[in-house]
Write a protein that binds this DNA or RNA. Structure first.
Lengths: 137, 137
DNA sequence: ACTCCATTTTGTAACCTTTACAATCTGATA
DNA sequence: TATCAGATTGTAAAGGTTACAAAATGGAGT
Protein backbone atom coordinates (compact mmCIF):
# COMPACT_ATOMS: atom_id res chain seq x y z
CA UNK A 1 0.00 0.00 0.00
CA UNK A 2 2.60 2.41 1.09
CA UNK A 3 4.70 1.59 -1.96
CA UNK A 4 2.06 2.39 -4.54
CA UNK A 5 0.87 5.48 -2.76
CA UNK A 6 4.42 6.71 -2.89
CA UNK A 7 4.74 6.01 -6.59
CA UNK A 8 1.59 7.93 -7.41
CA UNK A 9 2.59 10.91 -5.26
CA UNK A 10 6.07 11.03 -6.71
CA UNK A 11 4.60 11.31 -10.17
CA UNK A 12 2.01 13.88 -9.24
CA UNK A 13 -0.88 11.53 -9.89
CA UNK A 14 -3.82 12.09 -7.60
CA UNK A 15 -4.27 9.13 -5.28
CA UNK A 16 -7.49 7.15 -5.47
CA UNK A 17 -8.31 3.65 -4.26
CA UNK A 18 -8.91 2.53 -7.83
CA UNK A 19 -5.53 3.72 -9.01
CA UNK A 20 -3.80 2.09 -6.07
CA UNK A 21 -5.47 -1.22 -6.81
CA UNK A 22 -4.69 -1.09 -10.51
CA UNK A 23 -1.09 -0.19 -9.84
CA UNK A 24 -0.75 -2.95 -7.28
CA UNK A 25 -2.27 -5.49 -9.59
CA UNK A 26 0.09 -4.59 -12.41
CA UNK A 27 3.08 -4.64 -10.11
CA UNK A 28 2.26 -8.01 -8.58
CA UNK A 29 1.08 -9.73 -11.77
CA UNK A 30 3.61 -9.64 -14.54
CA UNK A 31 1.29 -11.51 -16.86
CA UNK A 32 0.91 -8.63 -19.32
CA UNK A 33 -2.84 -8.52 -18.76
CA UNK A 34 -5.41 -6.97 -21.06
CA UNK A 35 -7.64 -4.16 -19.82
CA UNK A 36 -10.43 -6.67 -19.55
CA UNK A 37 -8.39 -9.02 -17.40
CA UNK A 38 -7.49 -6.23 -15.01
CA UNK A 39 -11.12 -5.18 -14.92
CA UNK A 40 -12.53 -8.61 -14.11
CA UNK A 41 -9.90 -9.35 -11.52
CA UNK A 42 -10.30 -6.12 -9.59
CA UNK A 43 -14.05 -6.23 -9.88
CA UNK A 44 -14.04 -9.19 -7.52
CA UNK A 45 -13.12 -6.87 -4.68
CA UNK A 46 -14.75 -3.73 -5.99
CA UNK A 47 -17.92 -4.56 -7.94
CA UNK A 48 -18.54 -0.88 -8.65
CA UNK A 49 -15.35 -0.54 -10.61
CA UNK A 50 -15.85 0.82 -14.09
CA UNK A 51 -13.97 -0.24 -17.16
CA UNK A 52 -13.54 3.40 -18.09
CA UNK A 53 -11.54 3.83 -14.91
CA UNK A 54 -9.24 1.04 -16.04
CA UNK A 55 -8.62 2.81 -19.32
CA UNK A 56 -8.26 6.23 -17.69
CA UNK A 57 -5.74 4.91 -15.23
CA UNK A 58 -3.82 3.05 -17.92
CA UNK A 59 -3.61 6.31 -19.83
CA UNK A 60 -2.45 8.20 -16.79
CA UNK A 61 0.21 5.67 -15.88
CA UNK A 62 1.37 5.55 -19.47
CA UNK A 63 1.65 9.32 -19.66
CA UNK A 64 3.91 9.24 -16.62
CA UNK A 65 6.11 6.51 -18.05
CA UNK A 66 4.95 3.87 -15.58
CA UNK A 67 3.34 1.59 -18.12
CA UNK A 68 4.04 0.21 -21.58
CA UNK A 69 1.55 -1.05 -24.12
CA UNK A 70 2.13 -4.25 -26.05
CA UNK A 71 0.30 -4.73 -29.34
CA UNK A 72 0.63 -8.32 -30.37
CA UNK A 73 -2.73 -8.65 -31.97
CA UNK A 74 -4.73 -5.98 -33.67
CA UNK A 75 -7.61 -5.88 -31.21
CA UNK A 76 -5.84 -6.65 -28.00
CA UNK A 77 -3.62 -4.30 -26.05
CA UNK A 78 -1.62 -5.76 -23.19
CA UNK A 79 0.05 -3.79 -20.45
CA UNK A 80 3.41 -4.08 -18.78
CA UNK A 81 4.49 -2.18 -15.70
CA UNK A 82 8.06 -3.42 -15.92
CA UNK A 83 9.64 -0.47 -17.62
CA UNK A 84 13.25 -1.53 -17.81
CA UNK A 85 14.00 -2.65 -21.31
CA UNK A 86 13.24 -6.20 -22.34
CA UNK A 87 11.73 -8.07 -25.24
CA UNK A 88 8.63 -10.24 -25.29
CA UNK A 89 7.76 -13.67 -26.57
CA UNK A 90 4.22 -14.64 -27.44
CA UNK A 91 3.96 -18.40 -27.08
CA UNK A 92 1.88 -19.88 -29.85
CA UNK A 93 1.10 -22.92 -27.69
CA UNK A 94 -0.11 -21.48 -24.38
CA UNK A 95 -0.68 -17.88 -25.42
CA UNK A 96 1.36 -16.46 -22.59
CA UNK A 97 3.53 -13.42 -23.03
CA UNK A 98 6.95 -13.98 -21.56
CA UNK A 99 9.66 -11.48 -20.72
CA UNK A 100 12.98 -12.04 -22.39
CA UNK A 101 16.00 -10.28 -21.00
CA UNK A 102 18.29 -9.74 -23.92
CA UNK A 103 21.29 -7.86 -25.06
CA UNK A 104 19.77 -5.86 -27.87
CA UNK A 105 22.13 -3.59 -29.77
CA UNK A 106 19.39 -1.09 -30.59
CA UNK A 107 18.72 -0.15 -27.02
CA UNK A 108 22.03 1.64 -26.99
CA UNK A 109 22.00 3.09 -30.49
CA UNK A 110 20.19 6.35 -30.82
CA UNK A 111 20.36 6.53 -34.59
CA UNK A 112 19.63 3.86 -37.22
CA UNK A 113 19.67 4.57 -40.94
CA UNK A 114 19.65 8.28 -40.21
CA UNK A 115 16.48 8.06 -38.12
CA UNK A 116 16.34 8.89 -34.44
CA UNK A 117 15.36 5.94 -32.26
CA UNK A 118 13.44 6.76 -29.08
CA UNK A 119 11.92 3.41 -28.20
CA UNK A 120 12.77 -0.15 -29.08
CA UNK A 121 10.20 -2.91 -29.01
CA UNK A 122 11.19 -6.48 -29.70
CA UNK A 123 8.41 -9.00 -30.16
CA UNK A 124 9.07 -12.64 -30.77
CA UNK A 125 6.69 -15.39 -31.70
CA UNK A 126 7.58 -18.94 -30.87
CA UNK A 127 7.15 -21.59 -28.23
CA UNK A 128 8.07 -20.99 -24.62
CA UNK A 129 10.37 -23.12 -22.53
CA UNK A 130 7.56 -24.75 -20.59
CA UNK A 131 5.61 -25.79 -23.67
CA UNK A 132 8.76 -27.09 -25.31
CA UNK A 133 9.47 -29.21 -22.26
CA UNK A 134 6.03 -30.76 -21.98
CA UNK A 135 5.09 -31.83 -25.46
CA UNK A 136 7.77 -30.80 -27.89
CA UNK A 137 11.37 -31.57 -28.44
CA UNK B 1 0.01 -8.01 -64.53
CA UNK B 2 1.90 -11.08 -65.52
CA UNK B 3 4.04 -10.87 -62.41
CA UNK B 4 1.19 -10.97 -59.92
CA UNK B 5 -0.72 -13.61 -61.82
CA UNK B 6 2.39 -15.75 -61.58
CA UNK B 7 2.75 -15.20 -57.86
CA UNK B 8 -0.82 -16.23 -57.18
CA UNK B 9 -0.57 -19.33 -59.36
CA UNK B 10 2.71 -20.39 -57.81
CA UNK B 11 1.08 -20.31 -54.39
CA UNK B 12 -2.05 -22.10 -55.47
CA UNK B 13 -4.24 -19.07 -54.87
CA UNK B 14 -7.14 -18.81 -57.28
CA UNK B 15 -6.69 -15.83 -59.56
CA UNK B 16 -9.29 -13.06 -59.44
CA UNK B 17 -9.12 -9.45 -60.60
CA UNK B 18 -9.54 -8.25 -57.00
CA UNK B 19 -6.63 -10.31 -55.75
CA UNK B 20 -4.43 -9.17 -58.59
CA UNK B 21 -5.19 -5.54 -57.83
CA UNK B 22 -4.62 -5.90 -54.11
CA UNK B 23 -1.35 -7.72 -54.66
CA UNK B 24 -0.22 -5.12 -57.17
CA UNK B 25 -1.09 -2.29 -54.84
CA UNK B 26 0.85 -3.81 -51.97
CA UNK B 27 3.83 -4.53 -54.18
CA UNK B 28 3.98 -1.04 -55.66
CA UNK B 29 3.19 0.90 -52.48
CA UNK B 30 5.51 0.09 -49.63
CA UNK B 31 3.69 2.48 -47.34
CA UNK B 32 2.46 -0.21 -44.95
CA UNK B 33 -1.17 0.66 -45.63
CA UNK B 34 -4.14 -0.18 -43.45
CA UNK B 35 -6.99 -2.28 -44.83
CA UNK B 36 -9.01 0.89 -45.13
CA UNK B 37 -6.35 2.63 -47.17
CA UNK B 38 -6.14 -0.27 -49.59
CA UNK B 39 -9.91 -0.32 -49.81
CA UNK B 40 -10.33 3.36 -50.61
CA UNK B 41 -7.51 3.43 -53.11
CA UNK B 42 -8.68 0.42 -55.10
CA UNK B 43 -12.28 1.51 -54.95
CA UNK B 44 -11.41 4.39 -57.24
CA UNK B 45 -11.00 1.95 -60.09
CA UNK B 46 -13.47 -0.67 -58.89
CA UNK B 47 -16.38 0.95 -57.02
CA UNK B 48 -17.97 -2.44 -56.43
CA UNK B 49 -15.06 -3.65 -54.37
CA UNK B 50 -16.01 -4.87 -50.92
CA UNK B 51 -14.03 -4.38 -47.79
CA UNK B 52 -14.61 -8.00 -46.92
CA UNK B 53 -12.68 -8.91 -50.03
CA UNK B 54 -9.78 -6.83 -48.77
CA UNK B 55 -9.76 -8.75 -45.51
CA UNK B 56 -10.24 -12.11 -47.19
CA UNK B 57 -7.37 -11.48 -49.55
CA UNK B 58 -5.14 -10.21 -46.75
CA UNK B 59 -5.87 -13.43 -44.90
CA UNK B 60 -5.13 -15.53 -47.94
CA UNK B 61 -1.87 -13.78 -48.72
CA UNK B 62 -0.85 -14.00 -45.08
CA UNK B 63 -1.58 -17.72 -44.97
CA UNK B 64 0.73 -18.20 -47.91
CA UNK B 65 3.52 -16.16 -46.37
CA UNK B 66 3.18 -13.29 -48.81
CA UNK B 67 2.15 -10.68 -46.28
CA UNK B 68 3.07 -9.58 -42.79
CA UNK B 69 0.90 -7.72 -40.31
CA UNK B 70 2.25 -4.80 -38.29
CA UNK B 71 0.51 -3.85 -35.06
CA UNK B 72 1.77 -0.49 -33.92
CA UNK B 73 -1.41 0.79 -32.41
CA UNK B 74 -4.40 -1.04 -31.06
CA UNK B 75 -7.17 -1.33 -33.64
CA UNK B 76 -4.91 -0.50 -36.53
CA UNK B 77 -3.29 -3.27 -38.52
CA UNK B 78 -0.86 -2.33 -41.26
CA UNK B 79 0.33 -4.66 -43.97
CA UNK B 80 3.71 -5.24 -45.51
CA UNK B 81 4.36 -7.34 -48.58
CA UNK B 82 8.13 -7.10 -48.22
CA UNK B 83 8.79 -10.38 -46.54
CA UNK B 84 12.54 -10.35 -46.17
CA UNK B 85 13.43 -9.54 -42.62
CA UNK B 86 13.61 -5.91 -41.55
CA UNK B 87 12.54 -3.73 -38.68
CA UNK B 88 10.15 -0.79 -38.70
CA UNK B 89 10.20 2.73 -37.40
CA UNK B 90 7.03 4.62 -36.62
CA UNK B 91 7.80 8.31 -36.94
CA UNK B 92 6.09 10.29 -34.21
CA UNK B 93 6.23 13.43 -36.37
CA UNK B 94 4.79 12.38 -39.72
CA UNK B 95 3.24 9.07 -38.73
CA UNK B 96 4.92 7.17 -41.52
CA UNK B 97 6.17 3.64 -41.07
CA UNK B 98 9.68 3.28 -42.43
CA UNK B 99 11.63 0.14 -43.22
CA UNK B 100 14.91 -0.23 -41.42
CA UNK B 101 17.41 -2.73 -42.72
CA UNK B 102 19.35 -3.89 -39.73
CA UNK B 103 21.68 -6.53 -38.52
CA UNK B 104 19.58 -8.04 -35.76
CA UNK B 105 21.19 -10.84 -33.78
CA UNK B 106 17.85 -12.51 -33.07
CA UNK B 107 17.07 -13.26 -36.69
CA UNK B 108 19.76 -15.90 -36.59
CA UNK B 109 19.22 -17.25 -33.11
CA UNK B 110 16.56 -19.91 -32.83
CA UNK B 111 16.60 -20.07 -29.05
CA UNK B 112 16.53 -17.29 -26.44
CA UNK B 113 16.26 -17.94 -22.73
CA UNK B 114 15.28 -21.53 -23.43
CA UNK B 115 12.34 -20.49 -25.62
CA UNK B 116 12.10 -21.29 -29.30
CA UNK B 117 12.01 -18.21 -31.53
CA UNK B 118 10.03 -18.53 -34.76
CA UNK B 119 9.51 -14.89 -35.70
CA UNK B 120 11.26 -11.67 -34.79
CA UNK B 121 9.55 -8.32 -34.98
CA UNK B 122 11.46 -5.15 -34.26
CA UNK B 123 9.47 -1.96 -33.85
CA UNK B 124 11.06 1.38 -33.18
CA UNK B 125 9.48 4.66 -32.29
CA UNK B 126 11.31 7.84 -33.04
CA UNK B 127 11.68 10.52 -35.66
CA UNK B 128 12.51 9.71 -39.24
CA UNK B 129 15.39 11.14 -41.24
CA UNK B 130 13.18 13.49 -43.24
CA UNK B 131 11.49 15.00 -40.20
CA UNK B 132 14.82 15.39 -38.44
CA UNK B 133 16.17 17.28 -41.43
CA UNK B 134 13.28 19.67 -41.77
CA UNK B 135 12.60 20.96 -38.28
CA UNK B 136 14.74 19.18 -35.76
CA UNK B 137 18.37 18.86 -35.01
C1' DA C 1 -13.05 18.67 10.98
C1' DC C 2 -15.49 21.43 7.18
C1' DT C 3 -16.06 23.53 2.61
C1' DC C 4 -15.05 23.96 -1.86
C1' DC C 5 -13.57 22.85 -6.39
C1' DA C 6 -11.05 20.58 -9.71
C1' DT C 7 -10.45 16.06 -10.80
C1' DT C 8 -11.97 11.31 -10.93
C1' DT C 9 -15.22 7.70 -11.30
C1' DT C 10 -19.11 5.68 -13.22
C1' DG C 11 -22.45 4.05 -16.74
C1' DT C 12 -24.09 4.38 -21.14
C1' DA C 13 -23.59 5.01 -25.75
C1' DA C 14 -20.81 5.77 -29.69
C1' DC C 15 -16.87 4.54 -32.46
C1' DC C 16 -13.94 1.86 -35.43
C1' DT C 17 -11.74 -2.06 -37.19
C1' DT C 18 -12.42 -6.67 -38.00
C1' DT C 19 -15.23 -10.90 -38.50
C1' DA C 20 -19.49 -13.74 -39.55
C1' DC C 21 -22.80 -14.97 -42.61
C1' DA C 22 -25.86 -15.79 -46.52
C1' DA C 23 -26.85 -14.79 -51.24
C1' DT C 24 -24.93 -13.98 -55.58
C1' DC C 25 -21.36 -14.33 -58.80
C1' DT C 26 -17.30 -16.22 -61.14
C1' DG C 27 -12.95 -18.86 -62.40
C1' DA C 28 -11.25 -23.19 -63.72
C1' DT C 29 -12.03 -27.73 -65.23
C1' DA C 30 -14.23 -31.08 -67.98
C1' DT D 1 -20.61 -24.50 -72.69
C1' DA D 2 -22.09 -26.51 -68.19
C1' DT D 3 -20.93 -27.26 -63.69
C1' DC D 4 -19.51 -26.40 -59.01
C1' DA D 5 -16.35 -25.19 -55.52
C1' DG D 6 -14.69 -21.19 -54.15
C1' DA D 7 -14.74 -15.94 -54.26
C1' DT D 8 -17.13 -11.59 -53.85
C1' DT D 9 -20.46 -8.66 -52.02
C1' DG D 10 -23.36 -6.28 -48.54
C1' DT D 11 -25.20 -6.27 -44.23
C1' DA D 12 -24.99 -7.13 -39.63
C1' DA D 13 -22.59 -8.46 -35.53
C1' DA D 14 -18.58 -8.71 -32.56
C1' DG D 15 -15.06 -6.89 -29.59
C1' DG D 16 -11.98 -3.52 -27.66
C1' DT D 17 -11.56 1.30 -26.93
C1' DT D 18 -13.12 6.08 -26.48
C1' DA D 19 -16.45 10.06 -25.64
C1' DC D 20 -19.47 12.17 -22.73
C1' DA D 21 -22.27 13.90 -18.89
C1' DA D 22 -23.75 13.25 -14.23
C1' DA D 23 -22.45 11.97 -9.68
C1' DA D 24 -18.69 11.21 -6.48
C1' DT D 25 -14.50 12.19 -4.20
C1' DG D 26 -9.55 13.62 -2.95
C1' DG D 27 -6.88 17.26 -1.21
C1' DA D 28 -5.93 22.08 -0.11
C1' DG D 29 -7.15 25.88 2.59
C1' DT D 30 -9.78 27.53 6.33
Amino acid sequence: MEKYLKILREHGIKVTPQRLEILRFLDTHHTHPTADEIYHELRKKNPALSKTTIYNTIQSLTDHGLLHTLNFRTHEARFDSVINHHHHLLCSECGKVIDIEVECPFTKEKIAGGHRIDEVHGYFRGVCKDCLGIGGK
